[in-house]
Nucleic acid binder design. Structure first.
Length: 756
DNA sequence: ATTACTGCCC
């Protein structure tokens, strides 16, 4: 708005030789009749001031130009008003010119002129200039100058600089005002400088500055932000008058540390007290809701609050919008989050960023990419945070081609991605089977943090590289970083995947002593998985019974799976009974026990279990495989014939199967479905989804090209064996990602060493 | 005849 004002003020510039606006080439209007020409300065100053007070910035400036033409030199009164006029125009080059005028007429160190200049430069967000003026003031600096300067440090988030300035102010003997102390307290709150802030609190009392609504509000905020809500509450309770600011601070304070009920009670008390909540209030109260994690039944009161937000006409507010998105998203209500998002109708990057991140967290990667495309269509510039979310979306979708495209695009938009985005890229490349690229990405992080190392160790664990994971762990320690629970979990999982039982047990036993991390449920689950898969089923069950957590059914399922692998029917049946009692409607439990029987050749019993399952109307999760060819993802089911090239795919697959049969592949019928006739059993193995995906990959790419295949369930033993042979006869590397780990097939062998 | 400093959201 200020700029359009400038345009009406200044004559059009010469098109060939545009010059910046300045005082010299101004053409003034001719109707001077309205402007008298007083011969002494005071009436001029009064007139300029009057115009400014009335909001007539243009008239104020014009009057000043008239004064210059009259030849009367301006004084400090003129200049201080003029500076505040220019400040409102928000034109930095005009600002520099009035600064120059102040120097020219010798008033640059005068208190009022300098104060105005500091204020002006502060409003232009050029703190260096403000500081230069301030430093030039020497003795003329008043408490207003100090306050302006300290406030400017605080609003530039240079909190310790603000505190330092306050110290200087005390040293030169300038007495603080309530304004000073509120800025100082804000610094303390941000720096979590508890004892300094408390000293200031004492000053507030000693100097008799209370009651003062602003100062008390800052005090509430200070105590809450330093984690001492009770102290904040104390200040709040002693306040004579509470306005919307003070209530907001109190509600915010409660919600920030998860006092959800307290926050709600404040909210209600506030409304009872006749104070209308504003957008800050709603935001604070929604933040309280957002802190609740995994609350599948979003409390009714928050739907009511959303209703109030709509009624108050605040749905378009970007802060409210992001809060609503966060609340719904965390509670797995993505549909509602999307509605709140559409209600904002916003082009604000942060709003889009929250929505994209919400979709990714709810595992709707494709939707995240759709949103991104829509966002680009609106010419909203993505930031590093959005890119990070998108990389995770691609990781989740295993969509490497799209991921690379977005990675490439990010170079065009952003100079360098932050380390969070690089961590996401690492995960993406790894998850899509590009281990080398993931490691390169790690190396490109100039100052890797804990999260970067954690991601790297997790990547190495998933790819079955325990030695490399241990090395990364040691590198991390030599970087001076202390491992957290995630680091240790990832390292345990590296040992688990590789079957390094004694290393795993050793690390598990030393977690608390060596690294000060108490094993959590996940650590126990990892070790139990490791023991069970290694055949130490009794030991695994022993640990389940003695761990300080209640085992989830999924833990028993791990044991049951291991019983199948190690053909332990005795424990298998016991565990299956327990599981079916706990979760009578979970199909996997029936499938697992049926597999235990099948592996032992007890096909009739296996069949009975499957019938039982079918009678209950339960269906096992369908096995699916994906392969990405030329930026398109192709999905296959078992015996899938939906692909247009289906005939070619089946021909190729039959050809491949016949070839590997002659190189020593033997079908393992224990992996077949058991309700089909004996003679069809072998053949049904041929058309498992991952084999179809592989055959499609072979006919769709050139010779020797590495193929990457994804699967939603764990790879079956027969496919694992077939893929080893495939890698040999097609001379291709094959990467198969199942829901547990990566298998790199090459020259007839798999990276997992057949241990998975 | 003059300037101006403070509180609550992603």
């Amino acid at each position: 708005m200020a700029f359009s004002y400038c345009h009406s003020l200044f004559p059009p510039l010469q098109p060939q030789n545009p010059k910046p606006a300045n005082f010299k080439n101004l053409k003034l209007p001719r109707n001077k009749s309205s402007l008298r020409s007083p011969s002494n300065l005071i009436p001029w100053n009064s007139l300029i001031t009057k115009h400014r007070r009335q909001g007539s910035i243009q008239a104020a400036l014009l009057t000043f130009f008239e004064l210059r033409k009259s030849g009367i030199p301006p004084d400090s009164f003129t200049l201080s008003v003029l500076i505040s006029v220019v400040q409102e125009l928000a034109d930095i080059s005009l600002g520099c010119q009035v600064h120059a005028l102040s120097i020219k007429f010798g008033y640059w160190g005068e208190e009022f002129v300098a104060n105005s200049l500091i204020q002006m430069y502060a409003s232009f967000e050029t703190i260096d200039n403000a500081l230069r003026v301030f430093e030039g003031m020497s003795d003329s600096a008043s408490v207003v100058s100090w306050n302006s300067m300290i406030a400017e440090f605080v609003s530039s988030e240079l909190f310790s600089g603000g505190l330092k300035l306050y110290g200087d102010m005390q040293r030169v003997g300038v007495e603080p005002t309530p304004t000073t102390l509120s800025s100082v307290l804000k610094s303390c709150a941000n720096l979590k400088a508890v004892s300094e802030g408390k000293q200031v609190h004492a000053q507030v009392i000693v100097r008799g500055f209370v009651p003062n609504e602003i100062l008390e509000t800052v005090l509430v905020d200070f105590h809450c932000r330093c984690g001492e809500v009770e102290n904040g509450r104390l200040v709040f309770n002693q306040m004579k008058n509470r306005n919307v600011f003070s209530w907001n601070s109190m509600i915010r304070g409660c919600s920030q540390i998860g006092y959800r009920e307290e926050a709600l009670m404040c909210f209600q008390a506030m409304r009872r007290g006749g104070i209308t909540p504003d957008k800050f209030t709603y935001n604070a109260i929604l933040a309280a809701a957002a802190t609740e994690e995994d609350n599948h039944n979003l409390p009714r009161e928050f739907r009511l609050i959303h209703a109030s937000v709509i009624k108050a006409g605040l749905v378009m507010d970007r802060f409210i919008g992001t809060s609503l998105i966060a609340v719904y998203s965390r509670n797995h209500c993505l549909r509602e989050a999307k509605l709140a998002f559409e209600d904002t109708n916003s082009t604000d990057m942060a709003v889009w960023s929250s929505m994209i991140s919400a979709t990714v967290k709810n595992r709707e990667g494709q939707e995240a990419i759709n949103l991104f495309v829509r966002m680009l269509g609106l010419r909203i510039e993505p930031n590093s945070y959005i890119f990070s979310s998108l990389f995770l979306a691609c990781s989740d979708l295993s969509a490497i081609e799209v991921g690379k495209q977005i990675h490439g695009y990010s170079f065009k938009i952003i100079n360098s991605l932050d380390s969070a985005a690089k961590n996401s890229l690492m995960t993406m490349y790894s998850n899509c089977g590009f281990l080398t690229e993931a490691m390169t990405m790690f190396d490109s992080i100039s100052n890797p943090h804990l999260v970067s190392f954690n991601s790297m160790i997790s990547v190495l664990a998933q790819h079955g590289l325990p030695n490399e994971a241990s090395k990364a762990f040691k590198d991390m320690e030599s970087f001076g970083l202390k491992p957290d629970d995630i680091t240790l979990l990832n390292l345990l999982s590296a040992f688990n995947h590789a079957g390094l039982v004694s290393e795993g047990l050793e690390l598990f036993a030393s977690m608390e002593k060596m690294h000060g991390v108490k094993p959590k449920y996940q650590h126990y689950a990892c070790i139990i998985d490791m023991l069970a898969r290694a055949g130490e089923i009794d030991q695994a069950i022993g640990l389940i019974n003695q761990m300080p957590f209640r085992p989830e059914p999924s833990l028993w399922r791990i044991v049951l799976g291991a019983c199948g692998k190690h053909q332990n029917i005795g424990i298998g049946v016991q565990v299956a009974e327990k599981l079916i009692e706990l979760e009578p409607h979970e199909a996997t439990n029936y499938v697992l026990i049926a597999n235990v029987y099948a592996r032992l050749g007890r096909l009739a019993e296996a069949e009975n279990i499957r019938h039982l399952m079918r009678d209950k109307g339960l269906k096992k999760e369908e096995g699916l495989s994906w392969i990405e060819i030329k930026r398109k993802m192709y999905k296959f089911r078992v015996e899938d014939k939906s692909h247009p090239q289906s005939k070619e795919i089946y021909d190729k697959l039959r050809d491949l199967m016949n070839k590997i049969t002659s190189t020593g592949y033997e079908p393992d019928v224990s992996f077949t479905v058991h309700d089909i006739e004996e003679e069809r059993r072998e053949e049904s193995l041929w058309y498992h989804a991952e084999k179809l995906a592989f055959a499609f990959g072979v006919i769709s790419t050139g010779e020797g090209v590495k193929l990457r295949i994804m699967k939603n369930l764990r790879v079956c033993g027969d496919c694992h064996s077939a893929f080893k042979h495939f890698s040999l006869i097609t001379k291709r590397e094959i990467l198969l990602k199942d829901n547990y780990r990566f298998h790199h097939f090459r020259d007839g062998a798999c990276s997992c060493g057949d241990y998975w």
